[in-house]
Amino acid sequence: MFLKLALPVVTLIALAASPAAAADPIVIGLITKTETNPFFVKMKEGAASESTRLGAKLLTGAGAKDGDNEGQVTAMENMINAGAKGILITPSDTKAIVPSIQKARKKGVLVIALDTATEPVTAVDALFATNNFDAGLLIGQWAKGAMAGKKPVIATLDLQPGITVGAQRHNGFLQGFGVAKADPNSSDLVTAPQVVCSQDTHGNQAEGQAAMENCLSKNPDINLVYTINEPAAFGAFTAVKAAGKDKQIVIVSVDGGCRGVQGVVDGKIAATSQQYPLKMATMGVEAVVNYAKTGKKASGYVDTGVTLVTDRPQAGVASKDSKFGTASCWGKK
């Protein structure tokens, strides 16, 4: 009975999997934070097409959810057993993953962090990522221009405690706005007297909305909202609109996903810092293939760039319009 039922399962797996290639291609592992976030989907796309182009075999894995360190460790171990020459990883827990990365590197595996730095940064061979502090800085500088002549009352919708990316964007924003000074590598949030409300959203739309609702009941005079990413920004906009304040509140964000850039077109998000996951993945795959062929390891930090996307340019702040943003965005349009 169980056997009879098990058969379709086995068939299903056989369909889902493709048999191993005859020759021994270079094996590359890509481990993302989650399977579902469009940012990582785009990253996977980039890695897959570059692997095909260079004749390498790509293995992919992810944590069960954001913050799932053990899931990433397990995927890394399995990939090393599968003969991976190099591992590209967006660490979910920037400190907790380090001992496992060290084990992998001891076995001669090239480990490159994509998008998110480990703590310490030197735990990996190389880091290909957006400079998240700069991403924050850009929207901060833009907001300063946009808010000229008004008394700023700021809400920040953050990621969650202890995650570097969240702190870097937040701190960059406040420094760019000129109300705080911060260490670009710190994982602690700075604050300023102008910030009247700070809430964690886990980068999630529903939580972003709830956070904004709470902030508005705490202080109805809020006129500038920093958001960790675009889903949080859309959540914030829903709350702002429901409160009838969408004309007086400026929302800025980071990511440059296609939905986010559409938000700029629709006037929901005033400005966003766009980053480039495809480029990170493509460069990562090239680096591993190069290592497998020549034995040369990539090293250090490579900035994959960030562009401010807005349709209301401010003097002295370099930016591109939403047309550019749409052409170079990631995720579903």
Partner: peptide, 18 residues
């Protein structure tokens, strides 16, 4: 299943499905 599918190069979402 998690290990075997990973060695085969099947995406981890299929591990959840199975």
């Amino acid at each position: 299943f998690r290990n075997g599918l990973q060695l085969m190069g099947v995406g981890s979402i299929y591990q959840v499905l199975i």
